[in-house]
Design a protein around this nucleic acid. Sequence first.
DNA 1: CTATTTACCTACTATGTCAATATGTTTTAT
DNA 2: ATAAAACATATTGACATAGTAGGTAAATAG
Lengths: 131, 131
Amino acid sequence: MFSTKSRYALRILIDLAQQGRDDPVPLKDIAERQDISKKYLEIIAKDLVKGGLIKGASGKHGGYMLTRSPEEYSIGEIIEQMEGTFAPVACLEDNAEECPRAGVCRTISMWTEFYELEKNFFFGKKLSDLL
Amino acid sequence: MFSTKSRYALRILIDLAQQGRDDPVPLKDIAERQDISKKYLEIIAKDLVKGGLIKGASGKHGGYMLTRSPEEYSIGEIIEQMEGTFAPVACLEDNAEECPRAGVCRTISMWTEFYELEKNFFFGKKLSDLL
DNA sequence: CTATTTACCTACTATGTCAATATGTTTTAT
DNA sequence: ATAAAACATATTGACATAGTAGGTAAATAG
């Protein structure tokens, strides 16, 4: 199951895209429209800023903005920013230490195949496809 | 990420298939060959028995046996037995209560599409494919 | 009939993650 | 100066994960 962080992150980006890219959108408004705790959205927004997916503007009339147009966001990178990885098993993670069973493992090729399928699916879908 | 339960369950079934279907295979042997705690394997074996995927034989020369031939097991049903569901979001689970946002949700069709892709992949793969 | 080997059963536990809350501080426009 | 916003740090309760511990019941070999 994907975490609420991923699902809420998607909803933040969808909301930002729907509001247009002219003015910063305050989290308070997003929280009200999406009916999600503003405090929790702050945590998610922070991760999105860290990943360069949105940028924040402090102060009055501040808020958050997309850094690109919706066609330029893949769903994959949004989810990956929140989940860390799409790897279905730890040994397929980027920084994975070599599995001692690698030589005899009968399942790794299946996991790899699924991993590729999943990445192709989510990196192929764009934010603009959800609008 | 799939849980170790799913991964170990797969390894139990692979091991059983590799040992042949003539005699019951004791968990002790599987635990040694696979280098997994026997106690933990007991929990997993119990779930597999409950789902009818294997059957146990108590007493001396007892152990566990496959209930069918390896071609007749889909990887999907094995994983599903351990994980409960493949649904990527709660609202797609079988017994899900209706989501109040269903009318305005922009992501449900994507999750549904992925859900189908995932099920097709894992229910299409057979235990015999891993041998 | 007894000892052994096995499955089977119930309970417990340590650790970590998830999904938030709580309480501020800093930045910026008015 | 004030208000509104992002930004920062810490804490919390509930739950899941990945096991352990300690037994009982069943079947077989001797």
